[in-house]
């Protein structure tokens, strides 16, 4: 019996003993893959919890949902959720999701991936999917670094943060993701931290139910690298930091919501607007131009 099997058996025994239906996440997760690979006090598991809760609250059948991830720590989310899920190549979750959504518009397609994956290597796709307003939801877990590869500087690392490829501190200017998302056309933009479980769940519900390219950024602790190297302590200390330094400002102009290394963190719902989605635009435009010759596309 391997160590993992032993642990699973122990968990099973204990779950049976409790005499109830088991952990509410068990229907949502591929339990044969739990425990997951994320470090103690990592925030990604919290985001998975909230995502599951959001889907549950919306009441959408899970067969109609697909999760697409790229590569990285957050890229592993696709492997743990028990719904149709794709663990694609580095940076290309969004174009894969675009194809999936356009291939079958009845699906609810959600991209859950990290900051490095979505806005660095995948930055171009992020920009264009938002510009086109493809009807997908993007949940970006931002831990300010490339964690899976050992903590390199990322496009989101605050100036002065110490990481393995910025050993003397980062001298670049990081992306302000809500600002980026808004300026390229996202219809919904919100930011919360891993600590804001109810707020982030609500934001996910908003994003999932709103047509168009919707974007939720979740700031999450990376205890092993970012927090340790930048003397934030562990993930719990970082949650406490979020607790003390977060300020909720709904509707704040996104240009003002940069995250510095030790500045306050502006969270909230920043953008909520309506624009026709790519598919709606295609159907209405071609109908207008081609009349009866056009075959409306429904998947």
């Amino acid at each position: 019996m391997s160590v993992t099997d032993e642990l699973k058996a122990a968990v099973q025994a204990q779950t049976n003993k409790s005499g109830d239906a088991g952990h509410p996440m068990e229907d949502f997760l591929r339990m044969d893959r739990i425990p997951h690979i994320w470090c103690p006090t990592c925030g990604i598991g919290v985001v998975v919890n909230c995502f599951a809760r959001a889907l549950e609250k919306i009441g959408i059948p899970l067969d109609d949902v697909a999760v697409v991830s790229g590569i990285g720590c957050t890229g592993r989310v696709a492997g743990y959720v028990k719904i149709d899920s794709f663990h694609t190549t580095h940076g290309r979750a969004i174009p894969f999701a675009t194809g999936l959504k356009l291939g079958n518009p009845k699906l609810k397609v959600v991209v859950i991936s990290g900051d490095g994956d979505l806005v660095s290597i995948g930055g171009n796709h992020f920009v264009h999917a938002a510009r086109r307003n493809v009807d997908i939801t993007v949940i970006c877990v931002n831990n300010f670094n490339y964690a899976m590869t050992g903590g390199q500087m990322a496009a989101t690392s605050p100036t002065d943060s110490i990481l393995t490829t910025s050993p003397y501190g980062n001298f670049e200017t990081p992306f302000n993701l809500p600002f980026l998302a808004e300026s390229v056309g996202a219809t919904y933009v919100a930011r919360w931290t891993a600590l804001h479980i109810h707020r982030q769940t609500e934001a996910m519900i908003d994003a999932l139910t709103k047509p168009g390219f919707t974007f939720v950024e979740i700031l999450a602790p990376c205890p092993t690298i970012f927090e340790r190297r930048n003397k934030f302590g562990d993930g719990l200390d970082r949650l406490n930091y979020y607790y003390e330094h977060s300020e909720i400002k709904h509707g704040e102009p996104t240009a003002n919501v940069d995250v510095g290394l030790r500045t306050k963190i502006i969270v909230g719902k920043f953008v909520d607007k309506d624009r026709p989605t790519w598919l709606d635009s295609m159907n209405s435009h071609l109908k207008r131009k081609l009349g009866d010759r056009f075959t409306p596309y429904e998947g």
Binding site: L7, A10, V11, Q14, T15, S18, D20, H23, I34, P35, C39, P40, T41, V46, L195, D234, G235, L236, L239, N240
Partner: peptide, 19 residues
Amino acid sequence: GKIIIIDERCKGCGFCVEY
């Protein structure tokens, strides 16, 4: 509520205790 803790899954992060 009745609290159920699955010991063997825990990584001791303390989030639940703190919050």
